[in-house]
Amino acid sequence: MKIDLSGKTALVSASTAGIGLAIATGLAGSGAETIVNGRTQEAVDRAIATIRETAPDAKVSGVAGDLGSRAGVDAFVKAIQSTDILVNNLGFFGPGDLFSTDDEEWERYFQINVMSGVRLTRHYLRGMMERKWGRVVFLSSESGLNIPPDMLAYSFSKTAQLGIARGIAKFAAGSGVTVNSVLPGPTLSDGVREMLADAAKSEGKTIEQKLNEFVLATRGSSIIQRAASTEEVANMVVYACSKQASATTGAALRVDGGIVDTIA
């Protein structure tokens, strides 16, 4: 199967590093005219250069902007008015149980992880439906199903994405637009590397070793017994955005290494 997205435009929020950059690289390598996004122009320019190292002929551009607020999204959509493919990747994570997470932090998770995707989808979906073709993907997490009590607000935001994506898929029924969620498990992203760097150094281990130890200690149901790479997650997203995935919609597509212990 050859995924060819020539003639399509793709937008990936928060795509200057980690999973987002891997997704943008995969879409650009498949021929889509790809728009990357980050909070600073320097990060956007660096991501564009990285993508072109992998795909020298890629059609890639970028727009800087913080999409975690209504004002940021309003400014962004004035610059980028239309897209065929939207990947809602923006999000952040961190520890916090019921007692340690205050109201402001709950609201921050909601605005950044949930409402950024709602606002972008609300803007771009209409054009997709009018053109009778489009792809929307929300980057959720296995934590949206397998709720860790010590990451409660984060997990809530990822569960919310699942419900929103399913509802939007049904709203767009029969339009030629598909809407799906992709659920990574522990992934060796830039954020995870930063989080584990000090502990790995102090213990004389690589970051990969430290993350795999975390997977085995806290996600014992993992079948692959390791963390995923950003490219492995991106592969699923690129497929969900492809023409070949036309019968896949309203789905929660797991790239969790088998952590969620269900066959459904």
Rank of each mutant, 00 (worst) to 15 (best):
M1Y: 09
I3A: 14
K8Y: 08
L11W: 00
L11S: 00
V12A: 04
S15H: 01
T16L: 01
A17K: 15
G18A: 07
G18R: 06
I19D: 04
I23D: 00
A24M: 05
L27T: 07
A28M: 07
G29C: 04
T34Q: 00
I35A: 05
N37R: 00
N37S: 06
A47Y: 01
T50Q: 11
T50M: 04
I51M: 03
I51Y: 02
E53G: 00
P56W: 08
D57P: 09
A58Q: 00
K59A: 12
V63M: 02
D66R: 07
L67W: 01
A71H: 11
G72K: 06
V73C: 03
V73P: 04
F76K: 01
S82P: 09
T83M: 13
L86V: 11
V87Y: 02
G91P: 01
F93E: 09
P95D: 01
P95W: 00
E105D: 01
F110I: 15
V118Q: 08
L120C: 11
T121Q: 15
R122A: 11
Y124I: 12
G134N: 03
V136T: 07
V137Y: 09
M151W: 10
L152H: 01
A153L: 11
A153T: 05
A153H: 08
S157G: 10
S157T: 13
Q161M: 10
G163M: 10
G163A: 07
I168N: 08
F171Q: 14
F171S: 13
G176Y: 03
G176N: 06
G176P: 05
T178G: 06
V179E: 02
S181L: 03
V182E: 04
P184A: 06
G185L: 13
V192I: 15
L196Y: 13
A199Y: 02
A200N: 10
T206Y: 10
I207K: 13
Q209G: 10
L211C: 13
V215P: 13
T218H: 15
T218V: 12
T218K: 13
T218F: 15
G220E: 15
S221K: 14
S222E: 08
R226W: 10
A228F: 10
A228T: 11
A228N: 14
N235W: 00
V238Q: 05
V238N: 06
V238C: 03
Y239H: 09
C241Q: 06
S246D: 12
A251M: 11
R254L: 15
D256I: 15
G258M: 11
G258N: 07
I259M: 09
